[in-house]
Design a protein around this nucleic acid. Structure first.
Lengths: 190, 190
DNA sequence: CAGGAATGCTAGCAATGCTAGAGTAGAGTC
DNA sequence: GACTCTACTCTAGCATTGCTAGCATTCCTG
């Protein structure tokens, strides 16, 4: 029994190692640089080991994304907790979201842009994703009025997501980012 | 002289052929199915011919994107022209944008999601892109108030783009799309 | 009807995701 | 304490990718 437990523990540790290595590699050089060979070399195992843990590269990316949800949720929560009044809370949470996307673009892509095999808009979605979404919801709740809070959160989130992806793809000039963000918030405020 | 002219014409035709084939292949099976070999087979030339026209696959995708800007601009213009009052114009143009993204997802990705080597937020950007952006601008102008029209257009566009990409990536439930779109428009209306 | 230049093809390279099968530990049994 | 057997990891390889070098061929020019 104890031997099996130790093996399971070692396996879990190695899985974490793989996920961390994949994330670090992606954040350092982008997802296109995360190949099975380079990842295997980094964790000092052969490629087939990766496949004993994950179905394929997509599954590895999904695991990285799940980690990212927790990080994002924590940062949004911190931003909301530090804010004094509701209006500032929305601005601060939005700024935290934007900062996260800017600071960790590869991680953000795995979470929100790349096609990964994860449940999103269902109860089975990762708990951390619900947590992050909940932070956005609470931040915008004071501005909901008669609108459905869930729908409003989704729509505001779309605005944030669109701003970040279009800017990062070179479709929007960087220098106006702050003004666009302010404009988005003001239009979503009653 | 005439011979050179004919050759140039034939070359241009073949280039169009390549672009069209790439777009059709992408729209039928997605961009990951557009490989140099399949594309070459489709246009009934060998692979190196593609490289005599384009620097690589990215450049082919960029050419497809430029074609797409013209299509989108035309559809937005038609929607705006058919609308009776300003409020309806914004709704119709937004719906046309969403319909375009839904109907031609691969084309939309090349235009707005994939990283392609094209100038966007500069005067050198494709004229058709400016045209499409201009349609959005005119549609939202009545709602601008004291806000800068360019920034407002960019921000509203980000909202549309975010809605479509998140929904298509499975991050937002499809069934609420219309309500989210309505909500976005209402928040951007004065 | 030759000479030459443009043009398209065959063949191949390095790298990709993924897998089959061999080899090697270490755990359980007498 | 020796032995079998299971579980695990690695080497080697497949099919496919984007891209390129160098050879044929074709067609225009004089």
């Amino acid at each position: 029994m104890s031997i099996q437990a130790r093996r399971q523990r070692e396996r879990a540790e190695r899985e974490r190692l793989i996920i961390t290595a994949a994330r670090e590699l992606a954040e350092a050089e982008g997802w296109e640089a995360v190949t099975t060979r380079r990842l295997a070399e980094r964790v000092e195992y052969s490629q087939p080991v990766l496949y004993s843990h994950f179905k394929g590269m997509d599954a590895i990316m999904a695991a990285v994304a799940v980690e990212g949800f927790a990080d994002l949720a924590a940062e949004l929560r911190a931003a909301r907790a530090a804010a004094t009044d509701p209006r500032k809370a929305l601005a601060d949470v939005s700024a935290a979201y934007a900062a996260f996307a800017e600071r960790r673009p590869a991680l953000y892509d795995a979470m929100f842009s790349r096609t990964v095999d994860l449940p999103f808009a269902t109860p089975e979605a990762p708990a951390a994703l619900h947590a992050a979404f909940g932070e956005l919801s609470e931040a915008i709740r004071p501005q909901a009025g008669d609108d459905d809070l869930g729908l409003l959160t989704e729509t505001f989130w779309s605005g944030l997501h669109g701003l970040m992806t279009l800017m990062r793809g070179g479709r929007l000039p960087r220098e106006d980012h702050d003004r666009r963000l302010t404009l988005l918030i003001s239009r979503f405020s009653r």
